[in-house]
Nucleic acid binder design. Sequence first.
DNA 1: GTGAAAGCGCTAACAC
DNA 2: GTGTTAGCGCTTTCAC
Lengths: 335, 335
Amino acid sequence: MGKNVTIYDVAREAGVSLATVSRVINGSNVVKPGTRDRVMDAIQRLDFKPNQIARGLATSKTTTIAIVFPQSLFAHVKDMIGGIGDTSRRLDYNVSIYTTDEIGDGNPIETVIEKVVKSRADGVILFNNEEIEQEIELVNKYKIPSVVIGACVSSQYMGSIFVDSKKIAYDIVNEYLNRGQSDIAFVSPKQNLIKTDDMISGIVQAYQEHNLTFDTDKQIIHTSTHYEKSYPQFLEYFKTHKHDVVFTGYDKEAVAVVNAAIDNGIQIPEDMEVIGMMNTSYALICRPALTSIHVPVYDMGALAVRLLTKILNEEEIDTKEVPVQHLMMPRGTTK
Amino acid sequence: MGKNVTIYDVAREAGVSLATVSRVINGSNVVKPGTRDRVMDAIQRLDFKPNQIARGLATSKTTTIAIVFPQSLFAHVKDMIGGIGDTSRRLDYNVSIYTTDEIGDGNPIETVIEKVVKSRADGVILFNNEEIEQEIELVNKYKIPSVVIGACVSSQYMGSIFVDSKKIAYDIVNEYLNRGQSDIAFVSPKQNLIKTDDMISGIVQAYQEHNLTFDTDKQIIHTSTHYEKSYPQFLEYFKTHKHDVVFTGYDKEAVAVVNAAIDNGIQIPEDMEVIGMMNTSYALICRPALTSIHVPVYDMGALAVRLLTKILNEEEIDTKEVPVQHLMMPRGTTK
DNA sequence: GTGAAAGCGCTAACAC
DNA sequence: GTGTTAGCGCTTTCAC
């Protein structure tokens, strides 16, 4: 809207060529201080804002990173956006969001990645989810530099930030098994940033090492990420079941377990212990307060952006597969 | 990365000029079907993806909308991103996010709006917050088409989507006052998508109409949006206070009230009723389940994008100030 | 119905 | 140290 002032206008105003203006706005140090000042003055006077689009065309760089995720993963992604946003801003990148759920427009993932390609984002951040394989394949096909959060993968232009979910699960189960408590249930939500497969293999391993077997049919409970659905499910479930400990892939499901168990007269933590994951606000609000595994989501977002920019700038990189540490936050649902 | 295929390559492959290729990718209907097919084939063969940046330069349109908000408002914004994302995708717009919190780089709002200007986003969505005045001023200064969510404002290129927060507060308070319950407290979080000022004026009005006065010092409780802070505050507060009803600008604070009150032996809802706002997951998880005002956040996001695109395309617009309806969701914290 | 050519606003050699 | 010029990949008149 309104005639935008261009680099030409500034050049004329300052009595220099546009190349000089370009130099000063790009911080080139070959410009004579006096000239620079004249240009700066002109920029100020005309309120010139360099057009990123034109610059993008000229440099074939957009200084934009795309983040793509299914709506269903938003609860997790939102916590990372703080780190992503702050870090992008600090490094002077823009961030564009692309969501991938079905809205009846054909294959959403292909469509979405195609939009990313058209937008010429410099890089993309992916989040582990059910369709991650396909996303990775597409991103590699188009050779878009990328980092995926929540899974351990890498390739020439791809890195990753993740927690060792197998170890998390193994450690917890191992400890309970050591105490002789082997009736452990794992609640697996539909989609998760955390690889539930890995968690399960960690659990299985712990059982094996104790010469016990983990019954994946009876000890894994599949549930919805919607409390309206998971709570009634558990309300029914705990009429006839009880475990030594149940732990879940996400806090919200753990809260459903806690509430439903209590409503069935099961004392928490005396009769049954519950452990959530991600250490969200839900854990604090829950009564008793929920023991949960803290995952440094802000940092993961920040690290993802940092790693991605290193890949983009071809900086030296120690490792493209960056693990982050989790932390058990003991509260009222465990002894 | 890798040589990108351009419109020239397609033109050569199809044996036509680039103008023709441009016509077919833009759906011009003056192209002869046979020619169109040849071009489409070539596009397919070369896997050509039109460069949005170049197109943006040529058309001075980026088909991108920017959403800007402080991190602190993210809890609200996240719920709208569903509507924003879906609608943008459907209308073929990209969305870029810009967060405005201080990270030590001078005036964050000016800096951020400046980035939006440089990015040449076609339009911007703002969210009501403490700094909204300044944001509006800047957006108007740069003549960026915009819509603000959560406040009723408009100008030539600006529209808005909002709930009538004054009426919400008025209706609730009026009803309790009619029942003779006048000890009502309002909990006001720091920042909110909802205009807490308006809510307060609604409350005041209801009191006035009952020839009562609302004591803004004693009946308004300011608190943090962090449960870790608000819960202890209320735990202390309810040692010496009790109200007929307390309602809050956001569910999370209402849950803090409920939990803290219960911990002080106050029976909910018998001794005190509690009403939250936004009808989030927190309301369901709370014990007893929290009565809350449902606000159609998804729709607000969707409507914001729709309105913005109408402004961008200079379509006919009934009203630039679009109210949405709220809905009381009675649950266990009210009688 | 299609092609030639002039931009869009900038960067980056390459001269001087 | 500064200016000239040729792109970057498209759209859009204007001819034909």
